[in-house]
Write a protein that binds this DNA or RNA. Sequence first.
DNA 1: TCCTGGTGTACGCTGTGCGTACGATTTGCA
DNA 2: TGCAAATCGTACGCACAGCGTACACCAGGA
Lengths: 276, 276
Amino acid sequence: MNDSPEAGLDRDRIQSIERGFAVLLAFDEESPSPTATEVAERTGLSRPAVRRILLTLQHLGYVKVSGQRWMLTPRVLTIGQHFAATNSIIEVTQPHLLRLAERTGESASLAQLDGIDVIYIARVHARRVLSLNVDIGTRLPAHATAMGRVLAAFGGADEVDRIINEGGLPALTSRTVTDPINFRDILHQVRVDGFAIVDGELEEGFLSASAPVRDAKGAVIAAIAYSTSRARQTPEEVARDVLPILREIALDIGSDLAVLGDRPRVLALGARNTFS
Amino acid sequence: MNDSPEAGLDRDRIQSIERGFAVLLAFDEESPSPTATEVAERTGLSRPAVRRILLTLQHLGYVKVSGQRWMLTPRVLTIGQHFAATNSIIEVTQPHLLRLAERTGESASLAQLDGIDVIYIARVHARRVLSLNVDIGTRLPAHATAMGRVLAAFGGADEVDRIINEGGLPALTSRTVTDPINFRDILHQVRVDGFAIVDGELEEGFLSASAPVRDAKGAVIAAIAYSTSRARQTPEEVARDVLPILREIALDIGSDLAVLGDRPRVLALGARNTFS
DNA sequence: TCCTGGTGTACGCTGTGCGTACGATTTGCA
DNA sequence: TGCAAATCGTACGCACAGCGTACACCAGGA
């Protein structure tokens, strides 16, 4: 009965693992501490299956029970640590982001592309208060962010197609560019300019500039960004005052990466015990 | 043959899920981009099994291949987001930590206990530069940190036992308290005082003070901390100048939590699109 | 008192996921 | 240039891991 061309999708995929993550991700703001039955409903799995998975995750330390209600434990945060530990770019970039934030007095970020989103992988907040939670691990739609456009412009054509077709360029404000042709033109311009500035297309009043970070081979592996409020600066001011700094710092990061190379990893170990 | 008391360890645990996480965590600083064979060696799994697991994780978007080498993707960072999204304490605490950091000019942190470690779940860095990567998700041994002692002191007896027996109170500097009896005395004092100050027991020259955060029912659910350098302040100065502020802020957080209650969750949704 | 909605668990069948085994490919060395 | 060693991917058949059905139980509310 698996004769249909679509069926039999990959015999090389392990159902239980996919189920495990489905359960783990069933914990969200809509259901922060669900019962096993609730998890079963949300995931579409049978209750005994969910129970087995929750017990497994509990044994691994990622969830705990309190009465009938299950909760994530802080241990899930450590999974992300492995990403940081395996990407020298984060370590390398941190001081440069700090420098950027200090010279400008605004927020500085580092991000990579993930499907149709960008994900922040490092960030230094503006001292200017009330940052609020655009923090490491946060996803934002690539098409309406300066970093997303830089990463798309210098990434593969398939990634651009995915953003257009899969994502569909939804309007997030009245200013969001939603026309594919227009969008491709913009990306072309980004490729020519070597930077992107986005003004209020993600959120009204939010202004951001981004430049690509290149590895030793010249491949774009991330983007850095400067973010501010339209109330404080115009795009023209950003282009004039901030862009040179931003591009310089992007190049500096590239140089540092080239020095490090993919060479035998030096001890990044002590980092765990290094304090301010 | 499952008659032996030890054997038959839980039929309610799913092997594949445990294997999946084992593979995911096989990516670390010692092996940032391993081949499938390397992963097999590190995890003790067969190569085809590892291959299936990697393909599964790739399909989920958590790893990618480049040639023969596998790497984590930034998507693993989003797993941690679910923890933040399901714990109102983080959201509630952030502004208070900021206030603490601004009033003192040093770093402020929020942590919870995980086994024998504390895990940072929120943090505001000192503007004083070069913080360096004691960041969200970082684990530190509970027995030698102010936050760990607060959480142990106000936690269950089993947690204290675990820290002593499982962890073994290893000396991290010459000052670390390693004697169980001495350690229990200190915890007792913390319980009496309602705070902990640790001076150079985790790392030479590192000085930290911590106070418990209580929920509406009075249960200690986290700890906040103030961290500085011994070069800048003595423990006595911290006790005199900072401790009152720290305890006040811990109480403020508790009040905010009580207000929120476990009541029907209000929208925390917009947070995703809120900027500085 | 029943009813609702949660829980744990026994159990037998199925098909998932296992590892062995093999062929293809690449790399280093003679 | 050719052989050997060490990768890789993958086919395949078997075993048992994990599945869901079914049932018992328990707490709270009507």
